[in-house]
Every structure is written in structure tokens, then in C-alpha cells.
Write a protein that binds this DNA or RNA. Structure first.
Lengths: 342, 342
DNA sequence: ATCAAAAATGCAAGCGCTTACATCGATAGA
DNA sequence: TCTATCGATGTAAGCGCTTGCATTTTTGAT
């Protein structure tokens, strides 16, 4: 007998406070449109009933969710963690909630995740990198969901992006490598298929080589997934080559950590016998020994700026600018001169 | 003139296929209740219109979301990454979607995230560890949202959990430490406040000490946040002590990695001068040098099992069992005998 | 061919909220 | 005192979907 024990609705609150549902709704969403005394009464009822608005109903009625979706390639390592955390924090500050899902570097999975997030009413989407089917962007347009690309900066692209120049950054690192005296350069890249960041990083190395009069075709390149084990394995293959490369530039710090682990296992001295470099400057880079010479990416800054830009777009306050984040080479101990006999 | 360019609804599909909305809905949700020919016609219309169901509307009407929420303490490091990834994969296999948010180890933030997830219609929640306000569980009950605790196993707790015995696991590791000859033991723990896993790990060390006739009160303990830098800083403080501990047991691998980094910086040899241990056996543990002696937690197994149990509960197929995941000590190089002069 | 039972489909009532518009007082200038 | 104005609140029409029930069609046994 009496009220059921299920969750209270707006209606219950309205009754308890002796007002209409409209007033309760206004109390919650635009408190200044309701007179002080009423507001107090309503909030009091909300409190005592333990009322939480039903999100689905709200989204449906308001056709707005104050939710931003992000699809990242993986949660399995720390590459995106820091940037995403900053993104979320800033989003929260701007009154939005973040929904994250990961695509495992799989375009089909990404497409599905995008649809899911749109279906869930995301007001905007954060995407990693530019490379994806035009069809996806059409879908986003049709559903009028704005998107922002991060982790990559390309002023030439149609879509706004907040990121860094992958090619230039890697090119600069390669210049350091070359000016340290290295000529036999190998690279362990992430899978370039459908990954513009990986592609650009390879391109950056080639550019630096050409600029120094080296033959870019002479770059020994292995493509593999961004996993420690894969990095280790690729490094092993590289070390079996004759002549051995004197430096192994890795597509990111995770691969480099794998390379270092394998070097250690094989008793190969880094950097005395062979140098190794990374990219990203995640925490890992400082922990491994020797600490990695790598490209520092200000992930937090990127995350924050992406959040601000994306919310601005969603609120119609921006048409979608692209923002370039500056990276810089960090010199630690994994890069040195090539061994003499080389 | 003509149709607007906005996203198609169920109604549009129904019209295009010449059926009622009910039939379209059934096509999508229980295809076997619709005859083959009709189904093809409908799916065809769905396809050509590029229709994606509106999630909010569906949740509202069905009062079910096929969504599971997870609130983890942090995304900032890899502690939860692997387990969560497995959790998500299994969830997906079981037909559910995962929504993740992080609380930054802050109980208030966690409470808010829980409310948010419930408001969003989560059918069930994954929570980390048992320690939280009773009020939260009441709220969950009122909203009839089942929850499952992970990363911790406690058969005595009211709520079902899928996890491991933190105290026992750490106790076993401590036994190894003690039987290696260590007597001056220090520990860098995570903040134990509101964190039953951290508490249990400390307890485990104490238990092992007492079992070996050592005075558990003699344990030098520093509590700090689970961050590399904090681990480094705490290790520094420990090394300044006289007499120095001969072993530093860390609450997890992240703290241990920080300790190792600081040891390296100060030129302290591990394990020759001081031993270090971790907990979790995340990737990091194998990468640092010396590689960490730590407690291996089968995160993927835990994630998968948690997903299966939680979906079973949600579907009413389980009353909520608790599942214990077995851990084991992994011996690597960071633990050795204490130095002789000690 | 006949009819009951089963299968396929349609109808329409919500799900819990927001918001345009209507209503009602109170305030203030004439 | 009267009316125009404005602020506070109420009324009710959806938002796009699911689902119980009603209706129509098919099936199969006679």
C-alpha cells in the first residue's frame, strides 16, 4: 500500500513541492527563472526524494545531451590517457560529460562506435587523426553532430583539428639523430594503414634524411602494432640485420620501450651499441633505462584546448578553427653517437 | 520544399518500407518475430535511409539500456586499463556497451559519477573496491541498479565481488621478502583512506611479518598517491633513513617504478643495495630495470569474469555470486638478499 | 473447403522530460 | 481606480521508441 519503491520522477517532485512539472524543470535547468521561495521548496523536495533526473528523457525532450563522445584507438596503453584526462577535466568545467570508447585501431569498430555515440545523443565527437572514410563525415553531417580531430594537425584538412605536426616533429628528431652522426637508420613504425599520424612520422624521418643528403629509400622500416611486445620483436629483427642499423627510431614510446627491453635481454648496450628514440614522451619514457630521447607532446594542453574548441563549436560559438600544438625534442640518454667502428 | 535533411526516425523507415513502426521496431530488436520478406524490405529501408535508432528514445520506451557503467579511480595509468579492456570486450560479446568514467580516487566524485551513470540508464555498475558509503548502495537499490565490485574479493561483504584477496596476495609476497632474509622492511602504500585494496595490502605485509615473528609495528610505512613521482619521492625519503630499510615493498607497480627511478637517479643499486617489489604486474613491471618482483594479477581474466557475472545479474540469471581470482608472486630481479653488512 | 490455432502485423498508450504558449497576479504609471 | 506590462507559473504537446493488446493473415488438420 502506498507509493511504490521505484525511483522518483519529475512528477513526484512536482507533487511533493506543490508545483507543476514545468516549474521543477525550470528550477533544475534555469534556476533564475523561478522565484526564490518556490525554488527552495522544490530543491528541498528533490533532496528529500533523492531525485535524479532521467537522462534519456531529458535528452529526448531537450534534443541536447551536454555529452561529448571520444573514440580513441586504444585504452590499453598510456598514449591517450593523459590527453584524454585533460580533455575530460576541461569538458567537465565547461559543463559537459565525456563518453569514451575505443576502436582497437579498427576502422569498422570506429564507425560503429561513432554511430553508437551519435545514437546516444552526443552533441559532439572527438576523433583521433584525420584518416577515415568520407562516408563517416557525411553521416556526422546528416546527424548534425560536429566533430573535432585531435592528435594531429592538418590545416589543409576539411575538418578542424587540434594537434601537432607529426611529420615536422619526427623530422626534427631525425635531424638530431643524423647530426649525432647516424647514417644507418631503422624505424619501427606503427601500422600506417589508416593512421595518418604513423604515416606522417615515417614521412618526417624520410624528409630529414633527404634534407641531409641521405637516401630516404635506405630507411629500414618495420611496421607493427603499437605494443611493447611488438616493439621488442621488431627490434630483435632489426638487430639480426647485417650491417646493423646504428639507431632505431620508434613510432612511439611504447615501441621504444619494447625495443629497449629486447636490447636488454640480448645484452645489447643502449646507446653505446645502438641508439633508440621514441615519440610522445609519456611517463614510460622517463622510467625506462636508459631514459628515452623522444618528442615531447604537451598532451594536457592539447586535451584542454580540444575540449574548449569542441564545446565552442557545439555551442555555435566557433566555426571550427584548427589549433597547432607545439612539440619539442627531449634529449635523454637513449641517443648517442654511433659506435666508432660503424 | 520536400523532406528536411535531418536524421531519419523509425517513422520514416516505417513509411519507406510500408509497414508500421511496431514492425520496424521488431525487425531491429527481435527479427524472428517478423517474416522474412518484410524484414528484408525493412532492413533495406533502414540501410538506404542510413537510419540509426535514437538511443534515448529506446531506453525510455524499453526501460533498459544494455549499458553497463564502470567507475574507476583513474585512467591516468595502466592499472585498470587491461582489466577494463577485457571487461569491455566481454561485455560487447554479451550484447552490452560500456560507459567508463573516473573518480580520481575521490569519493564525492565517485558518488556523482554513479548518479550520472544511473541517470543515463545504466543497467548495472562496476565499482572498484568495497569501501564506500552505505548511502550509495541504498541509492543503487532504490533505482534498482545492480552493481558488482571488482579488484577486490571479500566473501564477507554484502555485495558480490569479482577480484582477488589483496591481503593474502601481499602477505605471500612479503613472505618471499622475509625468507630472502630481509628484516628492515619499508612500504610505500597508496592512500588507504577509503581504499580497501590499499588497506589490505598493508595488512598483508603486517600479517607476514607477525607470522615470521617480526614486529609488525616496526614496518616503516609511507602513504602516498599512486603516481610515479610520488613513488620516487617516497623512496627518496626512505633512503634518507638511518638505518636504511633493506627492502621497499610498494603498493603497486607504479609506485615501484617511481622508486626504481629514484634509486637510479641517486645511484643506489637495486637489488644489490636495496630490494624493491611491486603489485599488479602491469606491463611496466617487465620494462623497468631491474624488472620487478611483484604480484601477478590476471587482469583480463578478472575483467571477463566480472563482465559475465554482472550481465548475468542484470539479466536476472544470477543472484550475485562472488568470484575469487587467484594471484601469484612473480619473481624477477628487483628482489634479492639484503646486503651483507646489514 | 472449413475452422481453430498460431503467426504476423497494426494500433496506440505511454516512457520522463522540456518548452512554447497561455494564464494569472502584481506592479506601476496615468 | 484602471490598464498596460512583466514576471512567475501552469498547461499540454511532443521528443522517438517499445510493447500489450487487437486485428488480420497464414497454417494445418480435418
Amino acid at each position: 500500500m502506498g507509493k511504490t519503491r521505484s525511483a522518483p520522477t519529475l512528477n513526484d517532485v512536482a507533487k511533493a513541492a506543490g508545483v507543476s512539472t514545468a516549474t521543477v524543470s525550470r528550477c533544475l535547468n534555469s534556476p533564475d527563472r523561478v522565484i526564490e521561495t518556490t525554488r527552495r521548496r522544490v530543491l528541498q523536495a528533490v533532496e528529500s526524494l533523492g531525485y535524479t533526473p532521467n537522462f534519456a528523457a531529458r535528452v529526448m525532450a531537450a534534443r541536447r545531451s551536454f555529452t561529448i563522445g571520444a573514440i580513441i584507438p586504444t585504452m590499453d596503453n598510456a598514449i591517450f590517457a593523459r590527453g584524454l584526462q585533460a580533455f575530460q577535466d576541461q569538458l567537465h568545467e565547461n559543463g559537459f560529460t565525456l563518453l569514451v570508447s575505443s576502436s582497437a585501431y579498427n576502422p569498422d569498430a570506429e564507425r560503429e562506435q561513432i554511430r553508437t555515440l551519435v545514437a546516444r545523443g552526443a552533441d559532439g565527437l572527438l576523433l583521433i587523426g584525420h584518416a577515415r572514410d568520407a562516408e563517416i563525415y557525411e553521416y556526422l553531417d546528416r546527424h548534425q553532430v560536429p566533430s573535432l580531430v585531435a592528435w594531429s594537425y592538418d590545416p589543409a584538412a576539411q575538418r578542424p583539428s587540434v594537434g601537432f605536426r607529426n611529420a615536422d616533429a619526427m623530422c626534427e628528431l631525425a635531424r638530431h639523430v643524423i647530426s649525432a652522426g647516424h647514417r644507418r637508420i631503422a624505424m619501427i613504425s606503427g601500422m600506417t594503414q589508416g593512421n595518418d599520424r604513423a604515416q606522417s612520422r615515417v614521412k618526417g624521418v624520410r624528409q630529414a634524411m633527404e634534407a641531409s643528403g641521405l637516401d630516404a629509400a635506405g630507411l629500414t622500416l618495420i611496421e607493427t602494432a603499437y605494443e611493447i611486445d611488438k616493439g621488442a620483436e621488431a627490434f630483435g629483427r632489426l638487430m639480426a640485420l647485417t650491417p646493423r642499423p646504428t639507431v632505431v627510431m620508434c613510432g612511439n614510446d611504447v615501441l621504444a620501450a619494447g625495443a629497449l627491453r629486447e636490447a636488454h635481454r640480448q645484452g645489447i648496450q643502449v646507446p653505446e651499441q645502438v641508439s633508440v628514440t621514441g615519440f610522445d614522451d609519456i611517463e614510460l619514457a622517463e622510467i625506462v633505462s636508459p631514459a628515452l630521447t623522444t618528442v615531447h607532446v604537451p598532451h594536457r594542453e592539447m586535451g584542454r584546448k580540444a575540449a574548449c574548441e569542441l564545446t565552442a563549436i557545439v555551442e555555435g560559438k566557433s566555426e571550427g578553427r584548427s589549433i597547432c600544438i607545439e612539440t619539442r625534442v627531449v634529449t635523454r640518454h637513449s641517443l648517442a653517437k654511433p659506435p666508432c667502428q660503424s
